[in-house]
Design a protein around this nucleic acid. Structure first.
Lengths: 125, 125
DNA sequence: CTGCGATATGTTTCACCGAACATATCCATT
DNA sequence: AATGGATATGTTCGGTGAAACATATCGCAG
């Protein structure tokens, strides 16, 4: 009577550190994604319940870290402004997601090997 | 005239989150390694310039998170005490290192793809 | 039975990060 | 030129986690 394991599988989170000090991890990737979906930094911040300032700071970091800004920002205009992913932004996001996927696949065995040694958690709530 | 790239290659760091709340990342892995090399928690702490308390806390976390303690500790004795990796400890460490390696390999292309878009850093000190 | 070196833990202090608050600025539309 | 929604940016405040400090305990060697 083994019910299908929903999502008790471990999650692998990875972060890339570059030589220039820049880094990208789950937070920035998610932010890029939500900015693309919502069309604005502030909307993305709200959606992720993250302060606008923080969201903006992360965008600023990314834009300066890369040769081409990942997020293109517009002030004023029809709806006051907005933000969208640049070509580079789309590319970086896609690469990062692919990296996550591949890493998870490639390491599945090792992950399982570690998990097998974990404390029992069958009766946890 | 392409000189050999020393270590400006980006470093991939990954952390595993398990369902029971336990997690393991570069810090714990390194600590395990140094404990194995030095034979004591305090020596490991010194070697990594980490407070003994912090090192001990991490060990404690790991030991409770896994069914079998990863680090076996001894108080008193010939040289006052000591610590060593258990079988499980060795296994977990090995798995984690392998995971790192495989992930880095599997994601090499994506990593390169992201790095190619980074700000120029050829003239950085 | 005392000393040593390491483990084991509690308490306090501090630096940093993010949240919250506060404005300032921009500009197509009306 | 007035509006409005979003970007842009500085400042203050509080919580969290690590560092620092302080002991307590253990057990063999001598």
């Amino acid at each position: 009577m083994k019910m299908k394991p929903q999502d008790d599988e471990p999650r692998l989170r990875l972060r890339l550190f570059f030589a220039n000090g820049a880094m990208i991890g789950p937070g920035k990737a998610d932010l890029l994604e939500v900015i693309r979906d919502t069309g604005s930094i502030s909307a993305a911040g709200r959606a992720m319940s993250m302060s606008y300032k923080r969201a903006w700071s992360l965008v600023e970091e990314m834009n300066t870290a890369f040769r081409t800004p990942l997020v293109e920002r517009a002030r004023g205009g029809v709806k006051g402004g907005g933000a969208a992913l640049s070509e580079a932004g789309e590319t970086v996001l896609a690469h990062y997601r692919a990296l996550e996927r591949k890493a998870q696949e490639a390491g599945a065995d090792e992950i399982a090997g570690i998990q097998a040694l974990l404390s029992d958690m069958s009766d946890e709530t």
